[in-house]
Nucleic acid binder design. Structure first.
Length: 437
DNA sequence: TGCGACACATATCT
DNA sequence: CAGATATGTGTCGC
């Protein structure tokens, strides 16, 4: 069923790309590569690595969901393999033209309905000012390939020792640092030379149709990470961007209305959350959710609302459900989820319907999500009683990256955004992270 | 049903 | 601790 394995190159994916242990955010499908790249005579395969950082939660319908009005963020990076230091990269588009030297590379984000066949969906980025500020369309962001070292190579260590202080020489990308970066104000986190780009404060311009819990045909969106190469002729003033490859996420649902309309589910915010719930009503808000917290699902008014006002305590109600925690699956059974993520799922958009038909009928694979072995949490959440999500996974992720040298730096830089790092770390307190890993 | 704008609430930062 | 900042979300009107 999984039909689309997409591209000819279903790359082996980078090890780290698919986080084994934790996906608390929608996974990505296999990459699709459109053109061949060569470097000094050797074929080079680009591998896109993307991760949705926040904004999505696993709904009761077993679908990755987010609210149109909430922000989500995506981290993108890519690598080339083999890695040829200082080599020139060429793109072999049409047979008729000879190879064209790649002057620069960039990544961008887009979205579409029902996969490839669907219409493109606009994504917008807000500035911290939100409504008051301008909304910018997504644009290409120059990005350098991630050097080896953190990738799947186990030799990481070895390499590091070797390489002198600086980073490993990258392939030649003459215009990589040209113009563009002049952007005065990019809502996205960019650092001049990084191997990773964080698209932040992104929102879908519109919600998926038929979000209501009706069984009508629910529409799905896919986030698509695109990798581009600029092959502009030196004498051209305008860059010539060629799409090299893309990697789409699993299908997701974008809700247009307030969370209160979905009282049952809670966004558990994955990674972050600060905000509160609004509250003006008597309601309870769900405090951030529990992801970490104590109240896990708390609030979501399930009915109780009312009167008392306060409330929050109420919460109990089964909250578990949200399982977002991927860890179980990923970490254990499939240790490297690469397969998982690469996976299966996509392509079947059609099949989804089947799933819809019955709530109870989960997709086999997913079923796992629902029932995870407690052990995992136990360890973790010793402090909380609620059975709920173990935020851990998040942490683990972070840990992983840092571990790998180069990447680490990338993350740090990304941190410029500061907020994010901060929040995650501070907010999610997972003392011992990665324990299970 | 979904959207946009406004307003309020709250977490976190400074 | 207070103000600023950032973000979530309730509400209203279309």
């Amino acid at each position: 069923m999984p039909l689309s394995t997409s591209g000819p190159y279903s790359t082996p994916l980078l090890g780290y790309a698919s986080q084994p242990s934790s996906n608390e955010t929608p996974p990505f499908n296999a990459q699709e590569t459109y053109v061949d790249i060569t470097c000094e005579g050797t074929a080079v395969v680009p591998s896109i690595d993307a991760k949705i950082e926040k904004g999505f939660f696993w709904s009761n319908d077993r679908v990755w969901t987010c609210y149109r009005r909430n922000y989500f963020a995506v981290n993108v990076s890519f690598s080339l393999s083999p890695w040829i230091a200082n080599g020139r990269l060429y793109l072999n588009r049409n047979s008729n033209k000879g190879p064209e030297q790649i002057q620069a590379m960039a990544v961008s984000l887009s979205a579409a309905v029902d996969g490839a066949t669907g219409k493109q969906i606009e994504l917008i980025q807000h500035t911290p000012k939100r409504d008051k500020g301008p909304q910018l369309p997504m644009k290409k962001e120059h990005l350098q390939p991630t050097p080896p070292g953190k990738s799947h190579n186990d030799h990481t260590y070895g390499l590091n020792t070797f390489h002198s202080t600086t980073q490993i020489a990258a392939p030649q990308l003459p215009l990589q640092n040209e113009g563009d970066q002049s952007n005065q104000y990019s809502p996205t986190t960019h650092s001049s030379s990084t191997y990773q780009h964080a698209f932040e404060r992104i929102q879908f311009k519109s919600a998926t149709a038929n979000n209501g819990k009706r069984r009508a045909q629910q529409q799905y969106y896919h986030l698509i990470v695109e990798l581009w190469a600029n092959v502009q002729n030196p004498r051209d003033s305008e860059p010539t961007w060629v799409k090299i490859a893309t990697r789409s996420s699993h299908h997701v649902v974008v809700r247009g209305r307030s969370p209160s309309h979905y009282s049952n589910e809670g966004p558990h915010n994955a990674g972050t959350s600060r905000g509160g719930s609004g509250s003006g009503l008597g309601g309870p808000g769900h405090p951030g959710l529990g992801s970490n917290g104590p109240t896990y699902g708390g609030g979501y008014r399930n009915g109780m609302s009312g009167s008392g006002g306060a409330t929050m305590g109420g919460g109990m109600y089964r909250g578990n459900t949200y399982s977002l925690d991927p860890s179980p699956v990923g970490s254990h059974s499939v240790s490297s989820s690469s397969s998982l993520s690469g996976g299966p799922v996509e392509g079947l958009i059609d099949n989804h319907h089947m799933v819809d038909e019955e709530d109870n009928k989960p997709i086999d694979g997913y079923d796992g999500y629902q029932y995870f072995p407690a052990p995992i949490f136990e360890g973790i959440q010793s402090k909380m009683d609620a059975p709920a999500l173990p935020p851990l996974p998040e942490r683990s992720i972070k840990q992983e990256y840092p571990g790998t040298g180069a990447l680490a730096s990338g993350w740090q830089i990304g941190g410029c955004g500061s907020r994010f790092q901060g929040m995650e770390s501070s907010r999610g307190y997972y003392p011992d992270m990665v324990a299970h890993y």
